[in-house]
Each structure stands twice: as structure tokens, then as C-alpha cells.
Amino acid sequence: MSGFLKIAIRNLLKGPVTDPYPFGKTFIPEKLRGKLKVDASICTACGTCQEVCPSGAIYIKKENDVYVHTTWYNTCCFCGNCEFFCPTGAIKLTNDFHTANTKEEKFKFVTIAAISEKECPVCGNKFVPATLPLIEKSYPHINDEIKNLMKLCPECRKKAAFERLYQ
């Protein structure tokens, strides 16, 4: 009898178990796979995410000098492949789970990131430069020489690297 009373009093003190959402706050796990967040300053528009996406939710299109990275959530299965395979770590899944949308919003329910091309200081061609997180993966020590080569377009970089060899 005393055991029962203990449990009854404990339950009374604890309050209702019902989650107060949508009228109040709710518990969200930190590692929950929700909407994407693309860091346009790190992304190199390589297209790996578009390739590995099993449901074809990611689409990268070039418009003038800008690569537009579009993710449509109404076909995304939140598997996290894009985050896993992203070579630069630009894509991160947030724990934002609010996905309910009405029929008017169906095709507008996207996140868009714009990756702009940069101009080569030597020849003036436009290209998307490699970013620091990508270079950090390939080289153990990064000096100013590598950082200067990063700014050149692939053709000029080739020339500069060969010139360095024969000096």
C-alpha cells in the first residue's frame, strides 16, 4: 500500500506527461535530421550532394555567374547522405523538424543557397575557388604559397606550379 502511495504522490508532483506542443515548447534531440543548412561561403558547387541524394531533392543549376543550390523538402527523405558525402562540410542538417506545408506552398518549400563564381586575378576567367576546409583535408600544413595558389583558376594554377618547379 505504501508503495502505491509513493508512486501516486510522485506522479501527482510530476504533472502530465503530455508534450505541450503545439501550445508550448517541445523536446528536440540534438542529432535529429531535419532541414538542411548550406554554407554558401564554403560550398564549391561540386555536385556531390546532387549525385548521392537518393530521392533527387537537391538540384544545382548555373544562372549567369551564380550556382543556385536548391533543396526541395517535399521529396527529401532526410537520410543525411548529403552531409555525409559533402567534401567541404558545407551542408549541415539542422534539427528543425517543422515540415508541414499547405498545397500552395508545396513547390515553394525549398532552401536556396547561391554560390558565386570569383574572378582569376591573372587571366580574368570566372571559376569557383577551392575553399579552406577542402584544402585542409588535402594538405597537412597550409602555408601562404598554397593560399595564393588557391586564388588562381585551374589553368593559371597549372602554369604557376610548373614555373615554380623550373625556377
Binding site: C76, F97, T99, A100, T102, F109
Partner: peptide
């Protein structure tokens, strides 16, 4: 009328 994407969607969604 309403789409709730997710695989599966959270109960809150």
C-alpha cells in the same frame, strides 16, 4: 491540402 514530408515525420510535425 496539407503535405507533411519526412521519413517518417516527427509526431510534432
Amino acid at each position: 491540402d496539407v503535405n507533411v514530408p519526412g521519413c517518417p515525420p516527427r509526431p510534432q510535425a
